[in-house]
Write a protein that binds this DNA or RNA. Sequence first.
DNA 1: TAGCTTTTGAGAGCTACTCTCATTTTATGG
DNA 2: CCATAAAATGAGAGTAGCTCTCAAAAGCTA
Lengths: 208, 208
Amino acid sequence: MTPVHSSSPADVPQLGLRERKKIKTRTAIRDATYALIEEQGYEATTVEQIAERAEVSPSTVFRYFPTKEDIVLTDEYDSVMQDELRARPADEPWMESVRHILHRALDVSEADHEITRLRAHLMIQVPAVRARMMESMSVTGRLLAEVIAERAGRDADDLEVRVQTMSLIGGLTEVYQYWAENGMRDDLHGLTDRALHVLEHGLPPKKP
Amino acid sequence: MTPVHSSSPADVPQLGLRERKKIKTRTAIRDATYALIEEQGYEATTVEQIAERAEVSPSTVFRYFPTKEDIVLTDEYDSVMQDELRARPADEPWMESVRHILHRALDVSEADHEITRLRAHLMIQVPAVRARMMESMSVTGRLLAEVIAERAGRDADDLEVRVQTMSLIGGLTEVYQYWAENGMRDDLHGLTDRALHVLEHGLPPKKP
DNA sequence: TAGCTTTTGAGAGCTACTCTCATTTTATGG
DNA sequence: CCATAAAATGAGAGTAGCTCTCAAAAGCTA
């Protein structure tokens, strides 16, 4: 859900020079982007500026990332989440498994909490980013659906499975949005638990 | 959810000439857009072409619609739905109310089923359109939240209310997507009922 | 070192979208 | 009915995201 971008430069030793350079360029572009956005904001930052600071040509930027939004938003963590979900005991209720990996994902994102916050900020400020984020959430949803389908003994293309999954994604996206709108003060773990409770048992009556 | 664009030209008599012309221009742009998209596809259709066929200048097109996607997607029906939802008996369980207005909305969209299908098609073909549609769904969600909050005796800004609402929206969006992907053969009413059942009672076990 | 493949940069081109300013069109008040 | 204000339009210039092509540079293989 929330990614890591700053890869330690030493953890890929056996790769060829070509591959290593690619990774370097990729992170250079991302870092340049994050820096510029914090200085000037998202819209004010042009791809040309990004290219300049990353010391590559604009063409190269687009070779690495299809759109400007993707520079900020791409995770490589979807499949990791999927694997972790699969690693949970097969007889565990899937909602319980989801709860587990969500909290794990939150732990990871806390390590990168600068970026988590920047993204949250962009999400409520920049419509294009929000839209792109929803896109990527629905991709995550597809992966989730496969695992949920396994557990439920159903097909991943099942309407029921897909609806269940995307309703989950929708609810969780709203948690993030809520958190961002309220100044990122609340504890995301707590909010997530409240959300999962609603999704499992429906709206509890009254309270305020 | 799905809008009407072709407004009968006679149902706005007491409006000034100015207002009438505006409406005419608006629908001219929309009709031109729909026609061109069916002839050439979405991407191949430029705003310049749209302007030409609608007999206005490109500037005017952008004065009426902020983005190209909006020409295809803007509904004026959100507030109508909200009103209808409010008109339901106050003691009716809100899920039941939602079911009612969804089926009503589907009836309306059947009247315009050309456009409903075109949109569904664009939704699975054009990422930008899909993204924009999700945006507009989440706006609908905000309106829904207000009514659901009333019924549940809660605040519309409540995390619980917002999560419930957006999970509903997420699930329903997936119904539309499912329908589009499967050649728009199924009955949307039936699919919607199945979705609502999942959202209310969770994933039923096994079946295929 | 030679020859092959991959990556990069330069640059041209398209289109969505914005802004400004002059011109036309509609509304209004005397 | 005309003069004047207000609103809508068109023309045009400009920005930026994004695509494509082609030739030069860099890494790989023998």
